Computed example of a mutant assay.
Amino acid sequence: MAEPFKNLINAGTVQQAGAHLQRAWPAFDRHHFERLALDGLDALEFKARAMQLANALGATLPAPFAAAADVLEASLAPPIAIDAEGEPTGLSNAQSALGISGWTVWAMGEYVARHGQHDLARALACLHALTQRFSAEFAIRPFLRDQPAAVLATLAQWQHDPSAHVRRLVSEGSRPRLPWGLRLQALVADPSPTLPLLLALQDDPSSYVRRSVANHLNDIAKDHPDLIADWVVRHRRGASAQREALLRHASRGLVKQGHAPTLAAWGLAQGLTGSATLSLDASQARIGEDIGLQVALHSRAPGEQALVIDYAVHHRKANGRSAPKVFKGWKLTLAPGEQRALTKRHSLRPVTTRTLYPGEHRIELQINGQVVAEAVFELLPA
């Protein structure tokens, strides 16, 4: 069995952090820190472990925030290296032994977010260092919420930073809907303050940074779909292969939803010219199993057709109603007159984000955003 994710913060990492903090500040009460951090740790889930570690830092670091920031920075390992593609490579064992890196840094960022609000310049400088050993994407968000103009001005400087970690923080830390992170409601309502940053970073040499830009744009698409459709139209002109890939990733959700302006931006506004059928390999399936989808396509077009084929499963909810969830299918080009058969297995195993309930489920086949066929099956208890 795989090691539980929460164990990435454990007694060993706490003790290592205590040792490095004491190395950075000999007066640090390492034993008190470890007692606080380890109290009931095994019973806590992952985020709660990080927050408890931040509580222990708050109780043991020096009271002046600037002094505490000095200790945190002095306790760190070297920055995580970046490879030729701009991806993090991790630290060697020898480098890791030199200081703190990895998930423990999440707790350090949380400490900065809690205690650095009245010393913004020093807090941001500390996050600049922390993000090169893990990520400060969670910690910077309270500052963006409370002091947006000053933080955005700093991010505008950081977009030119030599470190890919810092440039990624510019995009990732300001995402309106970052998973696990504080939602930035002002940027959900109006994303325009971050658009110049994304424009500057969408051609960044680091794939690590570009992937964050794509995810940021995808966040914006959830509330401002037409803005992202227009972004794709404007920035596809003369786009490199790397930017084209970024724009596809940024608009993936809108394509799956069948958002007409986005489909048009990708040349997918036309529906299928021809016929499509959807059938299932069983009329019933149990929770925990899977079910097979068979799609038959027949083109009646005089030319090639670019098709994005997805399917929506209308899952039954606890109240008996149903709600659709779109899943990726196929992306292909259908030749004139071509007939093609496609198959796929759809998992009916429960996941952490979705509970499955018995009852009738409908599957709709979507081609270029248009529903062209459907089938139903009965989901039985496990």
Rank of each mutant, 00 (worst) to 15 (best):
R49T: 07
T273D: 08
S206W: 08
P336V: 03
E374N: 14
P26S: 06
H298W: 12
A186V: 07
I287Y: 02
G109A: 05
Q339E: 15
L53T: 05
A375N: 09
L293Y: 03
R243M: 08
G369P: 15
Q257H: 13
A11V: 11
I100E: 09
R114N: 01
V313W: 02
L348S: 09
L155P: 01
P225M: 00
G369M: 09
A200G: 01
D146P: 05
S207Y: 06
E45Q: 03
G258H: 09
S96Q: 13
R236H: 10
L307C: 00
V326Q: 01
L178F: 06
V170R: 02
S92Y: 05
Q284F: 09
A59F: 11
L98I: 11
K222G: 02
K331A: 14
H216W: 11
L53H: 05
N218P: 01
A323H: 07
K325P: 07
N55Y: 11
L184V: 11
L38E: 07
V112I: 10
R234N: 15
L332A: 13
P336E: 06
P324I: 01
Q157F: 05
A245M: 15
E45A: 03
H346I: 06
A241F: 00
H315C: 04
V71Y: 00
L144K: 05
L76H: 04
S192I: 00
P350G: 13
G90K: 13
D70A: 14
P225E: 00
F46H: 06
L127S: 02
S240L: 07
R236T: 10
G320A: 03
L195R: 15
A125R: 13
R133S: 10
H315D: 00
L268W: 13
R349C: 13
F28A: 04
S206N: 11
A296Y: 13
E360N: 10
P261Q: 12
L53D: 03
D219K: 03
A245H: 09
Q242N: 12
L41P: 01
S96C: 10
E85F: 10
A24K: 12
V14I: 15
D226H: 05
L155R: 02
G271N: 07
D290H: 09
C126W: 01
K325F: 02
Q95F: 03
Q270W: 11
A200S: 09
P261L: 12
A149V: 11
D230K: 04
Q159C: 14
Q294K: 11
G181I: 14
E110L: 03
P79F: 00
K344D: 04
R316T: 13
Q294R: 15
N215T: 10
P64V: 05
Q52V: 07
V209H: 02
A373T: 05
H216E: 05
R252V: 14
C126N: 07
R300P: 00
Q157K: 14
F327K: 01
T333K: 12
E378K: 15
A136V: 08
H259N: 08
A66I: 12
E45N: 00
L356H: 01
G58L: 08
D310H: 05
H118G: 03
Q270L: 12
P336Q: 06
W266V: 04
I367K: 00
Q284C: 14
S240V: 03
L76G: 00
G320H: 02
L130N: 09
Q242M: 07
A264V: 13
Y208Q: 06
H31W: 05
R30V: 04
L187E: 02
A97R: 12
L91V: 13
R210A: 05
F46T: 07
